[in-house]
Amino acid sequence: MAFAWYGIELDLDDEWAPVSIEGNQKQGYARLGSTRAHQVQLRWETVTKPPSLPDSVNRYLNRIAKDSRKVSFSKEISLASESEASYRYSGRASGRGSIRYIPDRNLVVLVECVTPGKDSLSSAHQKISSSLKVDCGDLYHWQVLGLNVYLPKDLEVGKRQLFAGRTTIHFTAGKHTIVTAERWGLASELLAKHDFLEWARAALELPRATITDEDVGIRLVQKGNLFARTQTAVVGLYPKENRIQSVKVQSNRSEWNPEWRWIGFSKDGSEIETA
């Protein structure tokens, strides 16, 4: 299972699941927990100029040292290159992490593995931090609890609903546009009971929408009026993963028209790897 948020992606085993996600495009934090007591922390922050990575790590570790008063605290920082530094610490908890500067996005990303005990984290951290990818194109990758979409970079996360079998994230682009990305599990069970087109119309709450079958999936368009925005959605079925995914856009601006690559399909219908 990969985890991707604002185009910052980590490739993780299935045992990892998000515990807490906070922040926005400029600055944020995600914590992922495993069935063991280990945790992975992902922090990101937009900077105006290239930072001094050892200083940033030092500041961060001093904060942790402050929290683990009365317990001996040791730290070690090593600079791998101008844009990457790694560190380890041991105090109330042990951690091993790395910090990277991504010049194309003016972004500093920190990936850290933490354990409350003294277990070795080097191989876990090596594997996880080397899988870090940051999107710098026009689409950012979002992947959490089975939802796997690529959306325009200007979006900010709004409400999130992470239910068993259904993952929904609402995004906003200014005041004019709302984008909703949704993933339903148990697709074969759902479609055994309902017709796909009718199900999509009901699930996306677009009762008056016109539906077009575009081979890759279906597109629903519900024209707006003086009081309501135009709503357009693309819905794809992924039989291999037994899931259905959709992206719905509510906007009166014509440039906000959902594309198939947003839900991971190229125009010929094949699934694309990354944006």
Partner: peptide, 18 residues
């Protein structure tokens, strides 16, 4: 459950528990 219905771990555990 995860293998049969292609669910993720958290999802399988939460639905099983309920």
């Amino acid at each position: 459950l995860k293998e049969r219905y292609k669910m993720n771990r958290l999802e399988a555990e939460a639905s099983l528990s309920a």
